[in-house]
Design a protein around this nucleic acid. Structure first.
Lengths: 321, 321
DNA sequence: GGGCTTGTGGCCGATATATGTCCACAAGTC
DNA sequence: GACTTGTGGACATATATCGGCCACAAGCCC
C-alpha cells in the first residue's frame, strides 16, 4: 500500500469513529507508530483538524475544521445522500437547488451501478406521497442527474417530453441551466429542432440520455435564469388559482400560507389570498387549515371540491347518539 | 504540494467536470504532463475508474466504478447534503434511517462551524411546515447529530427532555441506538439516573451535548432495536387515535391511507379506519381527502375540529350571486 | 492515406521522501 | 510516583518522485 492510499485509509478510519489510540491505527494500517505519527502530521499539514490527547485513554480524533475534507462514504450512506438530495430538489425546501444538484451530480457520476439500482428500486416502491406538497414535481433520479451532468459538461441530451396536453415527443437540446421556481424544477435549454430557447418542466422529462457530443454554451437571452423561467411560465396560468377572502389579519394568514401563495390585506381583520395550486386536495388543505372564516371566490371546480369536503366532514361528524 | 494532496486535488477536479484534457490538468496541478500521467496511473491503481480518450478532443474523465471514491465536496454541496439527510430522517422515506444518520454524523463531524451555522439558519427560516406529514418529527440537526455521534462513539450524553406532559427535565444517558418507527426517530439509551433502559422521542430532545466520557456498551434487553421500541411505545396511546367508518372499499382506502393508519374491511363497500395522528390538521386532511362518505367516531376533539373545518368550507363556498 | 492532435509507456538520472529503530521527553491518568 | 500514551529528533537505508526525451498508438480532419 502506497503512502497516498494510506492517507485516504487513515482519513476513512478517522471518519468512522471518533477516538482512535495510536497503536490501533498503526495496526490497522500495518505500519509502525512512528510512521503513523508522520502520516498524521501530513494530514494536519493538509489542514485536517486532527487533535491528539496524551496520557491514559489518549489517542487521535478528527474534529471540525476550516475546510471540508473529502468524505469516505459507505454505499448505504451514499444511497441515503442521493435520496435526501432528491427529496430536497423536489420538495418545499429553502435550500438552493443548485448546490443539491451539483452534489448529486458528483455522487451519481461515480456511483457504481449496483447502488444506483438500489436507489431506483427504493424510489419505485416509495409511498405514493400522501402529502400534497411532496407530490409536486416528482422526477426520476436518473433523468434528473443526467440533465444536471449534461448542464455541467455542456453536453447535448435527448429526452421524451410529456407536454401539458399529455402528448410525448422526443427532444434534442443543449441544456443550459436547471432552476427551481415555485417548488418545481425547470430545465432551460436550446431546443435543436426548434432552434430556439425553451423551458421544460423536469418532472415531465423521461428517458433522458446523454449523447456524448459537447457544444459551445450559448448566452442566455436574460440575465437571471430564475427570472427567465418565471417570465416564461408566468404567461401560463396555474392549474387552480384559488382566490379567497379570509376573515383574519393578513399577517397571521401570511404566516400560515408562507410562500405557497400571496396575501393582500383588506383591513385589519380580513385579507385576500391567492394560492396557485395544482392539486385540489392541497388547495383545500391550505384553505381549511387557516382556522378562520373564509369565502372562496374561485375557480368553480375548487369551490365545488371544497364544498364536497365540507359536506363530507359535516355529515360525518355528528355527535354519536 | 505533496503527491498526496495532488492526488486529492486531481480527484476533486475530475469530480467537478467530466472532461479534462491532459495539458489543462497538468497546468492546474503545476506539474508536467508526464507526472500527471503517473498520477492518473496511481489513481487508477487505487481503483478509480478514470478513462482516457485519445485523439483530437481527447482527455480524461471519471466514470462510475465498482467502489465509491472519497468525495470532494464544496461547502454548499455539503450543506445541501445535510439538509437532505435531515429531510430523510424526519420524513416519510423508505430509506433506512441508519445509513442517513451515519452519513450525517460523518459530515457534521468535520463540518466547519461556518457551514453548520448556515444550515442552522436555513432551518430557522424554513417554512413552518405547512404540510402535515413533514411536521411530524422535526428535530434540530445539532441535537440529532450529537446523538448519532455519541451512539457511534459510545459516549455519554446529556440533554433536556420534554415529556408528554410538557415538563422538561435534564437527562444523562448512555446512548445505544437511534431507530425510526412510524416516521419518528427514537433514541434507545440506558438512563443513568434511573438506572434502566428508556426510549426517547428524538424530536423531544433539546440541547444535546456530549460529555466526552465513553462507556462500555451494554447489551440491549431485546434482539431487534426496532421491535424493542415498538413494544415500548405500543403501550402508549397516540395523541388523537381517530376512528372512522368509510363508505369505500377497504382496498382503495388502504391505498390512500398508505401506512399512516390501519384499515379493516367491514364489507365490500365500507371499512373501518384508524389513524394515529398527533395533529388534528393532519387527521382532518387524511379523512377529508378520502373522497368518500365517512362517519367519524372519535375522539371528540377530532370530531369537533373536523366539524369546524366542514362548517368553514361549506360556509365559504356558496356560489357567487 | 497524410498530417494533425492527444494520450501511452519505457528509460534514465538526480533528488526527495518514506520508513523503521532507538531514545529522551512531555503531558496526561490513577 | 508509577504508568500510559503521544511527540519529535537523529540516522541509515530503501524507495518513490519528477522531468525530459522518445517512439508509438489511436483517434480526428482533409
Amino acid at each position: 500500500m502506497s503512502t497516498g492510499t494510506r492517507a485516504l485509509e487513515l482519513l476513512g478510519l478517522l471518519q468512522n469513529r471518533r477516538h482512535w489510540p495510536s497503536h490501533e491505527l498503526a495496526r490497522r494500517l500495518s505500519v509502525s507508530q512512528r510512521t503513523l505519527r508522520r502520516d498524521i502530521d501530513r494530514l494536519q499539514e493538509l489542514g485536517y483538524p486532527i487533535t491528539a490527547t496524551r496520557g491514559t485513554g489518549g489517542g487521535y480524533q478528527l474534529s471540525p475544521g476550516a475546510s471540508l475534507p473529502p468524505l469516505v462514504l459507505s454505499e448505504d450512506e451514499a444511497a441515503a445522500i442521493v435520496m435526501g438530495l432528491q427529496e430536497i430538489t423536489s420538495g418545499p425546501s429553502l435550500m438552493s437547488a443548485d448546490a443539491a444538484l451539483s452534489a448529486m451530480a458528483k455522487i451519481v457520476q461515480v456511483l457504481p451501478v449496483r447502488i444506483r439500482r438500489r436507489i431506483d428500486s427504493l424510489r419505485a416502491v416509495a409511498v405514493p406521497a400522501r402529502n400534497p406538497a411532496a407530490r409536486v414535481g416528482i422526477t426520476d433520479v436518473a433523468s434528473l442527474t443526467t440533465l444536471a451532468l449534461a448542464c455541467r459538461d455542456t453536453e447535448t441530451v435527448e429526452f421524451a417530453y410529456r407536454s401539458r396536453t399529455g402528448q410525448t415527443a422526443a427532444r434534442t437540446v443543449h441544456p443550459h441551466h436547471i432552476v427551481r421556481v415555485e417548488n418545481r424544477l425547470y430545465l432551460i435549454a436550446w431546443d435543436l429542432d426548434r432552434a430556439d430557447w425553451r423551458t421544460f418542466r423536469v418532472d415531465r422529462i423521461g428517458d433522458a440520455s446523454r449523447t456524448g457530443t459537447t457544444f459551445a454554451p450559448r448566452p442566455l437571452p436574460a440575465d437571471d435564469p430564475v427570472e427567465y423561467v418565471r417570465a416564461r411560465i408566468g404567461a401560463m396560468p396555474a392549474r387552480y388559482p384559488v382566490r379567497a377572502t379570509v376573515g383574519a389579519p393578513a399577517e397571521r394568514v401570511r404566516e400560515e400560507i408562507a410562500h405557497y401563495g400571496t396575501v393582500e390585506p383588506i383591513d385589519d381583520t380580513s385579507c385576500r389570498v391567492e394560492i396557485a395550486a395544482d392539486s385540489l386536495d392541497w388547495a383545500t388543505f391550505c384553505i381549511g387549515a387557516l382556522d378562520a372564516p373564509v369565502v372562496v371566490h374561485g375557480p368553480p371546480e375548487a369551490i365545488a371540491y371544497m364544498r364536497a369536503w365540507g359536506r363530507r366532514l359535516t355529515a360525518g361528524t355528528q355527535e354519536p347518539p
